[in-house]
């Protein structure tokens, strides 16, 4: 999946807009987001929802991977405690979230960039409210965009890399 076109707006836009990756459980929060849609409860277009069956499926690796690929924030939405479609998958999510938050703090990622929210299937309004709130908070924090930071970090490798490549070319001649 290398050659991606660059005709997209985000890639060229000067104005930074936060991107939030959201993992929503199928039964509560994803359905609530559907409800928000049906009821036309508008919210900021900065969120990208990835559906999982249960918030318990959200591997902390997914959260880190989203950050590493450039997300400015990650939102996890699950059923309210006691209401989990899978009895208590959301409790596992809650525990992981508490530890992950500590890890992220130590790695310099602000607390507001990871949010866990219990949103029941009927709470369309809460979807809209949560997303708007989070977008606003993350906007105030500014870009995280690790994908770009990684490139900056690795810029220091460029000169030697180029040198090595040119030597290879010479060697092949």
């Amino acid at each position: 999946m290398e050659d991606r076109p660059v005709s997209d707006k985000l890639s060229t836009s000067v104005q930074w807009e936060p991107i939030i990756v959201a993992f929503f459980c199928n039964w509560c929060t994803y359905t609530a987001a559907d409800l928000a849609g049906v009821a036309r409860m508008g919210y900021d277009p900065n969120v990208r929802v990835i559906r999982v069956m249960c918030s318990g499926r959200v591997d902390p690796q997914f959260v880190l991977d989203a950050f590493a690929h450039g997300a400015d924030g990650v939102l996890i939405g699950g059923c309210h405690p006691g209401d989990c479609h899978y009895v208590e998958g959301n409790y596992k999510t809650l525990r992981r979230y508490h530890l992950l938050r500590r890890l992220l703090r130590d790695l310099g990622i602000e607390e507001q960039r990871l949010r866990l929210e219990w949103i029941a299937a009927s709470e369309g309004e809460k979807v809209s409210k949560t997303i708007n709130e989070m977008v606003e908070q993350v906007r105030a924090l500014g870009p995280l965009r690790l994908s770009r930071r990684f490139k900056e970090w690795d810029a220091e490798l460029a000169s030697l890399e180029a040198e090595a490549q040119s030597e290879e070319v010479v060697a092949h001649v």
Partner: peptide
């Protein structure tokens, strides 16, 4: 592994929504 929700499937979604980030 979970059918329909394999790690690779979810990772590629993450990468997909963030391709321009």
């Amino acid at each position: 592994k979970q059918n329909l929700f394999e790690d690779e499937e979810i990772y590629s979604e993450i990468e997909g929504v963030l391709a321009y980030a």
